[in-house]
Design a protein around this nucleic acid. Structure first.
Length: 576
DNA sequence: GCCGTTTTCGGCCCGACTGTTTTCAGTCG
């Protein structure tokens, strides 16, 4: 919904990248990045702000405020256009490749005229990089691996990008006269971690006005196909969106059909066939008579197939159909079940919002408790100190009780070092209500070392939650190599929870690993890892991921009442 | 380009890691 802010954010980021590539003042590039982050995390719509309000945003001064105003006035910023004209867009894409930064990208462009990822891949294969200063065989290998990682996600986008787009489209189409219902379906409704294209479903007697509104959306770059029942467009950012309009009577069947997954649909249609029925997007039909049996709601469709209604996040053919047939589907954890958030940051470290702003937003979410867990000193760039941490704790204790019923917990996000040790000695750790511990360095350790490292962290009596356990970044960094079964066993044994991190580029643990860990009796914490107030709402992505891992409220420690949670945090005895 | 309980100038997140180098540049968190 904060689209103008997102536009400005991406514009400022682009300019920062281009400055870095042109090799100008590194601090200037960093200033633009900082401003971009602050604007993304700003809750006001920047397109409505005047110069004075813009400059009140930390990191935004006169120059950037002017450029933002210029952008909303003219639709462009002259200074940005000038740099864009010099650096092809493809060169900027090069720095998206992990291990390839602005300096190397500039060199590749200047020396070899390379201006796209494809050209770079070709150049490496043609051995054109040989002899280029600073490029050896290992660098070539790293770049190729990086390109490979990028291509694995292909044209897919992260969950939040697709969700924001879909919600905007659904809101617009829902307002069209004659639109009886509208929602998103497909992999987005299933909360898959990346989305290839967005599926929107609407119900109406006359589809024409909805189709027209869809084709005329500002974000449409190209109409790929347009008919009475279906229209496909490509957005200006290259994402394909399909809209299907169905009669209201077919809503349930269509929603079931377009939510998928393919494997799930194949199974459900097989069940239909065995019952002499036919399931399509228009309904469930009797094969012999051709008559419609049911179609109005998903519940009816599933029921008629002898199945309980299956939550979309389970529809991956991972046993949900058998469970539904036996009426043994898990009571999945929902966002409403969450009583608190146990991993959040403030501007004391790398968050962009103040402690008070974060608490205010958290309280509005109706939480019963909330932990502030800023970074610990070993992540040197965060410049944490004992004094700062203790000062924050004192402030937090002061504020406790001032946000309705929400109780405040003081925590930290520790760094698990290469040996499995963490930042502070036991007597200092003792003072925290909750400690998250995460890997932030030495990602490339051997399987044996990494396993030992994580297990040692679990064995630390003060470590309550392993943060983003595999440390992957979707499309950017592989998960660490560890014997996860060994880690899960250690978690269960020591009463250490595994995090389901909700940041859309992490979603870590991921669905399959959650399912697996659950078998060991591990408990989980669904956390936002929020660095801004908006991020706090992004916990929905973690909930979706947890659902895909079949988690129930009992599996998730931050659905528990505070007294039960506190007992768990003491690590006095193994998992209750 | 931003910012100021030392400041309107001179700092700015700083250290580890990697690969390419024989002393360092680039990238990352």
């Amino acid at each position: 919904m904060a689209r103008p802010n997102d536009e400005v954010e991406s514009l400022l980021r682009e300019y920062a990248d281009l400055l870095a590539i042109t090799g100008g003042d590194a601090f200037k590039a960093r200033a633009y990045e900082r401003a971009a982050r602050a604007i993304a995390g700003c809750h006001d719509d920047v397109s409505t702000l005047g110069a004075r309000e813009l400059k009140a945003i930390p990191g935004v001064g006169k120059s950037i405020a002017d450029k933002i105003e210029e952008y909303f006035r003219d639709g462009r910023v002259a200074a940005f256009e000038e740099v864009r004209a010099r650096i092809p867009a493809g060169v900027r894409q090069l720095i998206e490749i992990p291990t390839l930064g602005p300096k190397k990208a500039a060199l590749l462009h200047d020396q070899l005229g390379i201006s796209s990822v494809d050209e770079l891949a070709d150049a490496i294969k043609a051995e054109r990089l040989r002899g280029l200063k600073g490029f050896g065989p290992k660098t070539e290998e790293n770049i190729l691996h990086g390109i490979d990682l990028m291509r694995q996600t292909g044209g897919r986008v992260l969950l939040d990008v697709a969700m924001n787009l879909a919600e905007e489209i659904v809101a617009t189409l829902s307002a069209v006269t004659g639109c009886l219902r509208c929602t998103y379906a497909g992999s987005l409704r299933r909360y898959r971690e990346t989305i290839g294209d967005v599926d929107i479903l609407a119900a109406a007697t006359d589809s024409a006005p909805i189709m027209a509104a869809f084709r005329n959306l500002d974000l449409v770059d190209e109409v790929i196909a347009s008919g009475e029942k279906k229209t496909s467009i490509r957005t200006t950012k290259g994402l394909q969106v399909d809209l299907r309009v169905v009669p209201l009577e077919a809503w349930g069947a269509a929603l079931q059909y377009f939510t998928g997954s393919q494997a799930h649909n194949v199974r459900t249609r097989e069940i239909a066939v065995h019952a002499k029925l036919k399931l399509s997007e228009y309904g469930l039909f009797d094969v012999e008579t051709g008559k419609l049996v049911v179609s109005e709601t998903e519940e009816e469709v599933y029921r008629r197939l002898g199945l309980a209604w299956i939550p979309p996040t389970l529809r991956e053919d991972r046993g949900e159909i058998d469970a539904a047939a036996r009426d043994q589907l898990p009571g999945l954890v929902t966002e409403r079940d969450l009583r608190g958030d146990l991993h959040t940051h403030t501007d004391l470290t790398d968050g962009v919002a103040t402690l008070e702003d974060m608490l205010e937003t958290a309280a509005q979410r109706g939480y019963a408790y909330y932990a502030v867990t800023d970074h610990a000193p070993n992540l040197v760039m965060q410049r944490m100190s004992d004094e700062k941490m203790l000062f924050q704790r004192a402030r937090l204790r002061e504020l406790d009780g001032k946000y309705g019923r929400m109780r405040l917990l003081h925590g930290t996000e520790l760094n698990i070092d290469a040996d499995g040790d963490v930042d502070w000695p036991p007597d200092f750790l003792e003072g925290f209500d909750v400690c998250v511990a995460s890997v932030h360095s030495s990602f490339g350790q051997s399987r044996r070392d990494m396993t030992r490292r994580l297990v040692r962290a679990c064995e630390n009596p003060h470590v309550n939650i392993i943060g983003h356990p595999t440390t992957r970044l979707i499309g950017r960094r592989d998960p660490v190599d560890a014997d996860l079964a060994e880690v899960f066993r250690a978690c269960a044994r020591t009463g250490t929870a595994l995090e389901v991190n909700s940041l859309p580029d992490r979603l870590d643990l991921r669905d399959e690993h959650i399912l697996w860990a659950k078998e060991f009796g591990v408990k989980f914490a669904i956390n936002s890892d929020a660095h801004s107030t908006q991020n706090l709402h992004g916990i929905s992505y973690g909930v979706g991921t947890a659902q895909r891992g079949w988690l129930t409220p009992d599996d998730v420690i931050n659905t528990w009442p505070l007294t039960r949670l506190r007992k768990f945090l003491l690590k006095a005895s193994p998992t209750p």
